[in-house]
Write a protein that binds this DNA or RNA. Structure first.
Length: 499
RNA sequence: GCGCCACUAGCUCAGAUGGUAGAGCAACUGACUCUUAAUCAGUGGGUCCGGGGUUCGAGUCCCCGGUGGCGUACCA
């Protein structure tokens, strides 16, 4: 013990940040080398998963199996001991008995620390207490863990550590792994769903010369050889629509989007979206696509279209109620803003306690009223149709009332789940919309669109009428895994470096 | 960006009013050949987030800074 303390003290002097425990484990690793065994072994032939031993006990009882995984707990009784081995499938109890292993092999077991990764070969049996176990005959050291595991009972709770060291979080908190497995199942299911519907998955650039397709502040990076700034994409929309021009009729992209904005329980600077475009379709087709995709994802995640989110029961079974924004504002807030002039609308907004610009239009006031006061109340999935044109620069305007567009958002638990429209394919209209966005930008709105001449040029070649859809995958996964924070569904969320 | 809160052993947490820093788990030593949060006896382990200040004396009070959480703003 004294020499360990001395070694730790020496390590500290040398600037190595390690405690006595790490020093001790390093010495144990050297001990393995002394036995002629590398503490960082190579290939190990495992033929059985931990969970399989329990699931297939009837067939496996008395047979030999080879398992590999991490030692999570050890219960030592002198000349016999138990340990729990965990692999990706689950957990199995190992039984080590000196009589069976022999002194040398049992001595090896005594050198195993919690957290070590080992291979074990032995016979499947059931203990007197009834627990299905493996009586180990051969133990193989595969990886020495130098750092101790978090508390076996309480796990790792420090949220800072959980996000920074997700690997430790996953070791200590098995539910975390489960959440990310569900996420993977959802993503894989969406790809199957889209393929079954005839959509082709494509990859468009992540680095854009113009950041378009959404209202958001971009990250800026620099290309040295071309000596020019590039933006990380804030959406995939404008490139996917170029592909419609090129003749692809059903395309989608699922990938990472970057927005240089605040971080919160619902926002991470990089996140995953899916955008899909279907030629010759309109936003009604997108409503059906959205409902079906989400319902299918729910079945993949929880086996049902009814899910529980933060104590609320949410029924995602299609079809979802379809209401226009104007209707919802009128019914829930008692102001028929859509029937008002701009000036009347500004007064109505004031009555509702909203602050709007002096020259705000009816559409802006309606959108503000909806965003602030209606959307948070929409708990069950709802399709909110017909967004004002001012806030929808890429959506086709309505024939009978050009103040509105063929755009909807699907809303659930007070949050946007999907955003879709009948795509604007009139190049002249699109150029005007960009121009008014550029005006907004010059007035100081950093999130207004930039002019994208090449995109307008593409439309001039002719983009077929189309429906388009965007869904935030992270928020969908939050809903389907009952996660309160987006950081709980992103493996490595963005964090400031620790000082 | 602003406000509130948190930061103490490897992990989970206690530490009224300022007075020699504690527990459980983990680790170490010993006992124990069917335990499962194994049990029993003993031992070691601390930059109390960092830096200033007040005080005879600061984990505790004050100021500055760091990181995080929550709320809020921003986020079609």
């Amino acid at each position: 013990m004294e020499d360990l303390t001395a070694i730790a003290a020496e390590a500290a002097r040398e600037g190595l940040d390690e405690g006595e425990e790490i020093t001790r484990r390093k010495k144990v690793a050297e001990g393995w080398r002394g036995l002629g065994v590398s503490p960082y072994g190579g290939k190990f032939l495992k033929d059985t998963e931990a969970q399989e031993v329990t699931d297939r006990f009837e067939q496996l009882e008395g047979k030999h199996v080879s398992l590999a995984g991490r030692i999570m707990t050890i219960r030592s009784h002198g000349k016999a001991s138990f340990a729990d081995l965990r692999d990706q499938s689950g957990k199995i109890q190992l039984y080590f008995k000196q009589d069976i292993l022999g002194d040398a092999e049992y001595g090896k077991f005594l050198m195993v620390d919690l957290g070590d990764i080992v291979g074990a070969r032995g016979k499947v049996f059931r203990t007197r207490r009834g627990e299905i176990s493996v009586q180990v005959e051969q133990l193989t050291m595969l990886t020495k863990a130098l750092r101790p595991l978090p508390d076996k009972w309480h796990g790792l709770k420090d949220v800072d550590a959980r996000y920074r060291q997700r690997y430790v979080d996953m070791i200590a908190n098995p539910d975390v792994r489960k959440t990310f497995l569900v996420r993977s199942a959802i993503v894989a299911g969406i790809r199957r769903f889209m393929e079954a519907r005839g959509f082709v998955e494509v990859e468009t650039p992540s680095m854009h010369t113009i950041a378009g397709g959404a209202a958001a502040k971009p990250f800026i990076t620099h290309h040295n050889a071309l000596d020019m700034d590039l933006y990380l994409r804030i959406a995939t929309e404008l490139h996917l629509k170029r592909l419609l021009v090129g003749g692809m009729e059903k395309v989608y992209e699922m990938g990472r989007i970057f927005r240089n904005e605040g971080i919160s329980t619902k926002h991470n600077p990089e996140f995953t979206s899916i955008e899909a475009y279907q030629a010759y379709a309109d936003y009604y087709d997108m409503m059906e696509l959205t409902e079906s995709l989400v319902a299918d994802a729910a079945k993949n995640a929880v086996g049902s279209t009814k899910v529980s989110y933060q104590g609320q029961e949410i029924d995602l079974t299609p079809p979802w109620p379809r209401r226009t924004m104007a209707q919802l504002v009128r019914e829930l807030l008692g102001e028929d803003i859509a029937a008002m002039s701009d000036e009347q609308a500004r007064k109505a907004a004031a009555r509702l306690g909203l602050e709007v610009d002096k020259d705000a239009t009816m559409g802006m006031c309606l959108n503000a009223a909806y965003d602030e006061l209606v959307e948070p109340k929409l708990i069950q999935p709802t399709i909110v149709m017909d967004y004002p044109i001012e806030v929808s620069p890429l959506a086709k305007k309505r024939e009978e009332d050009p103040r509105f567009t063929y755009r909807f958002e699907a809303v659930c638990v007070g949050r946007e789940l999907a955003n879709a429209f009948s795509e604007l394919n009139d190049p002249i209209d699109q150029r005007q919309r960009f121009e008014s966005q550029v005006d907004e930008r010059q007035k100081g709105d950093e999130e207004a669109h930039m002019m994208d001449d090449d995109f307008v040029t593409a439309l001039e070649y002719g983009m077929p009428p189309a429906g388009g859809l965007g869904i935030g995958i992270d928020r969908l996964v939050m809903l389907l895994t009952d996660s309160a924070s987006i950081r709980d569904v992103i493996l490595f969320p963005t964090m400031r470096p620790k000082a």
